[in-house]
Amino acid sequence: MSTSDEELTWREIEVGAIFTVPGTTADYQTGDWRSQAPSYNFDRCIKCGICQLYCPEGCVGQDEDGYFIADLYWCKGCGICARECPTGVITMVEETE
């Protein structure tokens, strides 16, 4: 089944309108809802992963050095990670064009 809602017609809909592929919202960019983005100062990061645990999106992953960083494709900019970070690594900055 196609995952793009623009291209989907009734011919492609499964019987019973079931989903055949799990987790397809991962293709959907919620990042463009954002008005603020997290910015990182990794000098103070202790790699505790609290931001990963508390992210409602589940968009925080580890980079190759083990630092936790939000994937801006999905990050909606709620600022929970910045608020909960115990060492103050994260600050929220206004998005600019």
């Binding site: 799990p22 397809t24 919202t25 809802w33 992963g49 409602p56 580890q62 900019g77 929970i80």
Partner: peptide, 25 residues
């Protein structure tokens, strides 16, 4: 609270990209 990533399963059965409001608990 010491080292969280090792204590939490990595799997995400609830995928990102859902349409919850910003900061949804």
């Amino acid at each position: 609270t010491v080292f969280v990533p090792r204590l939490v399963p990595k799997k995400e059965p609830f995928a990102p990209g859902h349409r919850a409001c910003i900061g949804c608990g």
